[in-house]
Simulated assay, not measured.
Amino acid sequence: MKFMILVKATKDSEAGVMPSEQLLTAMGKYNEELVKAGVMLAGEGLHPSSKGARVRFSGAGRTVIDGPFAETQELVAGFWLWEVKSLAEAIEWVKRCPNPMLEDSEIEIRQVFAAEDFGAEFTPELREQEERLRQQVASKG
């Protein structure tokens, strides 16, 4: 099962406060554990929302909204993509994570949809297209 692990933003992360050498070292060690265990597929930190934008969809219309965004508790400061056996395993890994922020913080765990989750609407043709695209992406990496 794949899970997206979302590191929620804080006032400091949104202010652009960078992690200390101590935190970077602890996170590097933690990431090494994830890789050695075959859990980590990807992971990155994100710039503050002040350097980003949102695109709002309304019918055929598109509206661009420049950051920053006020709802800090709803923002993401970083992520991992993990392959684990269950939600319980993902929770156990997150509980071992160093606090990713200089202040109280939160990490959200969300399962990634698999092809079989979409049922009959995900036709054989759509499955073939999805597999072809995944192979193209993998070949660029």
Rank of each mutant, 00 (worst) to 15 (best):
E116I: 04
V64L: 15
L23W: 10
V17A: 07
K85I: 04
M101D: 06
A37V: 08
K29T: 15
A9E: 07
A15P: 00
G16F: 06
R127D: 14
R110S: 00
A15M: 08
L6C: 10
E121Y: 00
P100D: 05
A138C: 01
A9W: 02
V94K: 06
A60P: 00
V64C: 05
F69Q: 06
E71N: 13
L87E: 09
K29L: 11
Y30R: 12
Q111L: 05
E44K: 10
G45Q: 07
E32M: 10
Q111R: 15
A15W: 04
M101V: 02
A42S: 13
K36C: 05
H47W: 07
E106I: 07
E121L: 05
A42D: 15
G38K: 12
E130D: 14
G16M: 07
E44S: 13
G78Q: 03
P48H: 14
Q135S: 12
V35L: 10
E116C: 02
Y30A: 14
A53S: 13
E92M: 02
V39A: 14
F118A: 15
E92L: 01
K140F: 12
M40L: 15
I107Y: 01
G45D: 04
Q73A: 15
W93D: 02
E106M: 13
K140L: 15
A42R: 01
G16I: 07
S13D: 02
P98C: 03
L81T: 08
E103Q: 04
E21A: 12
E33A: 14
K51S: 14
G61C: 05
N31H: 09
N31R: 12
D117Y: 00
E32Y: 04
Y30Q: 12
K95T: 08
G61I: 02
A138D: 08
A9T: 05
Q135K: 15
L75M: 14
F118D: 06
D104V: 01
L6E: 10
G141C: 04
T25E: 12
R110T: 01
R110L: 01
F118P: 01
A53P: 01
R56N: 09
D12C: 05
K8T: 07
K51L: 14
